[in-house]
């Protein structure tokens, strides 16, 4: 393996969900992040606050974004998580769009933002699996 590839492999793996509060798919991104961090790959992934990426005045969060393998999980096509990571100087290694995952299986539909329901939890698991299948870990 060449040095650059080893460096990329050794980098910290960060999941950045959009966590949008206005749409149910925003809540699904949070659940997908939890599934990845707690259930599917404990100890492999970490996360960082989206607002901190944008408002970090000491630049340590932005440095973290620039030096990690960042996977963004966006709820809607506004792609706020991806936009924020790029604003901070990072380049996501994988960008997952929840509504696209939903389009592949419309039975996994979230119920509401207060309770995404069984459909929403299934969708979150679908999103988490997309991350794993695409080399997220």
């Amino acid at each position: 393996m060449n040095k650059r590839l080893i460096a990329l492999t050794d980098r910290r793996k960060l999941i950045v969900p959009c966590s949008g509060i206005g749409k149910t798919v925003g809540e699904v991104t949070r659940e997908a992040t939890r599934i990845l961090i707690e259930e599917l790959r404990p100890g492999v992934f970490d996360t960082v606050c989206l607002a901190r990426i944008m408002m970090d005045e000491e630049e340590d969060t932005r440095e973290l974004i620039r030096t990690s393998n960042v996977i963004t999980i966006d709820g809607c096509p506004e792609r706020c998580a991806t936009t924020s990571v790029k604003f901070a100087g990072g380049t996501p290694v994988l960008e997952v769009l929840t509504v696209k995952v939903l389009a592949k299986n419309r039975t996994h539909r979230p119920k509401s933002i207060l309770d995404i329901g069984e459909g929403g939890r299934q969708l979150a698991r679908d999103v988490a699996e997309v991350v794993i299948e695409n080399g997220g870990a």
């Binding site: 959009c18 966590s19 949008g20 509060i21 206005g22 749409k23 925003g26 989206l50 607002a51 944008m54 408002m55 506004e78 706020c80 998580a81 936009t83 924020s84 604003f87």
Partner: peptide, 12 residues
């Protein structure tokens, strides 16, 4: 109403 902070920060 709620303001979506990620959208707000992204410049909406």
């Amino acid at each position: 109403i709620t303001i979506c902070l990620p959208l707000f920060l992204a410049g909406d």
